[in-house]
Design a protein around this nucleic acid. Structure first.
Lengths: 238, 238
DNA sequence: CAGGACACCATACCAAGGTATGATCATTCC
DNA sequence: GGAATGATCATACCTTGGTATGGTGTCCTG
């Protein structure tokens, strides 16, 4: 179920959250346009981290190792990674916990689970949780590399689409409350006359707001505006 | 990558395919509005089919058993089921083959795999292929029932959204080629003047087509029309 | 061959959208 | 206090969209 917003104020807050979140991805994505993809390895066993790091570096990835979920989360680089290799069993906090935390934080990095003591229910749980692969040790190097390549590819695609929408989000955030209100009612299909009546304004004022919206969002036609509103699920709170 | 259509003719064919496909789901969905959900069990072992059937019937499901993938596909009821319980290992053709065939046929029934000889790679493969659960025998009855309940819920939600779009698809198919052409150009943001020029028509003719489109599609406002076009990915072939 | 569906066009008229100019008033920020 | 921003409105003017009425021509089908 989608949450419904009761006040324009909330709508504004949601937008600001969105652009703040998008900006992080934007900056990170921009920082490394054609640089090698970055892979994180979270495993409590230092020798495993070293082994995987060597393997991944040998084919051109940049690698960072973390001994625990906490260390990973504390790194402040969580948005940086194009792929995450995660041990299921670790002291204190297991891999599934980190998977859930990342999901709650809306950090959509592709996760590849590895474990030495795999069973079927465990792997099913991981995949249900959105992991893109699950490997039980010992695994072939080639299998891991293929999984990482798939994960990185997914992530790069996602970041590209984020780049697309970030600029739009920024522009949307540049609208004033009134302008956004008018925009939502207009894209809902209401006539200027109706909007003016419902907001207690004159028609000409609505027209002015509409014009400003079009200029600020750089939408040439009304159809573009509707599509933009649709993309961001901007609806009048009802 | 989305396939691009070079000729309006193809666009028309795609639409007709869409409504034909949607109608099947529509009919099936309508046939059982509040009837019990139907579950298919595909397993070569008759005793397993009997056991599962008893279990599922005891909690109110309608169940049909099939001894092989071929028997299931030949049943002509593939669109009927709200959930599919599928054995991984069967003679002639395994469960994964059926999963792929259903995916190719665009039959999106939720699949629950069961197997007596499970291993981790097998379960990961199943989940990657879109299965909603993977149970290894012996499993608790409760686990299976929960999985089936989740699958049925997913399927009912999907059918509802199909019901929504079927009527729209039917209306779209009722448009003439010219009307659809004008609609696509209009929702792309072009002015009547431009459309008229590019199609070699007079402006008034374009207006008439537009009016007919609005009436045939029962869209009250232009914004609704844009959203409809967006929903069906109707773009001018370029 | 007659009827129907479709495409096409003209004239006339009205409603809605959009812009420019110029103005008032309140709030906020330096 | 003054500048900037935003919200509000009026007048005037033009463009665009939409409908109604009435008409022509083509193609296809029963």
């Amino acid at each position: 179920m989608e949450r419904r917003w009761v006040e324009p104020y909330c709508e504004t807050r949601r937008l600001h959250f969105l652009i703040a979140w998008a900006r992080v991805l934007y900056v990170q994505a921009k920082k490394h346009p054609h640089d090698p993809p970055v892979v994180a390895v979270v495993d409590d066993d230092a020798s495993v981290r070293a082994g995987l790091s060597n393997l991944l570096r040998s084919v051109g990835y940049e690698v960072r190792g973390y001994g625990s979920s906490q260390a990973f989360l504390a790194s402040d680089e969580t948005h940086l990674f194009n792929c995450l290799i995660l041990d299921v069993r670790m002291p204190v906090e297991g891999g599934f916990d980190l998977q859930h935390q990342l999901a709650n934080l809306r950090i959509q990095v592709p996760i590849i689970f590895i474990t030495g003591h795999a069973d079927v229910p465990m792997s099913v749980r991981a995949m249900k949780g959105g992991a893109i692969d699950f490997l039980s040790k010992p695994f072939r190097d080639q299998d891991l590399l293929e999984a990482v390549a798939a994960g990185v590819k997914t992530d790069l695609g996602r970041r590209e689409s984020v780049l697309d929408t970030t600029e739009k989000a920024r522009r949307l955030a540049g609208l004033t409350a009134r302008e956004r209100e008018v925009m939502m009612m207009a894209t809902a299909g209401k006539m200027n006359k109706q909007i003016a009546f419902e907001l207690g304004l004159s028609e000409i004022t609505v027209k002015i707001h509409r014009g400003k919206v079009m200029r600020k969002l750089q939408t040439r036609t009304f159809a573009d505006l509707v599509r933009l509103a649709e993309e961001f699920r901007l609806h009048k709170p009802m």
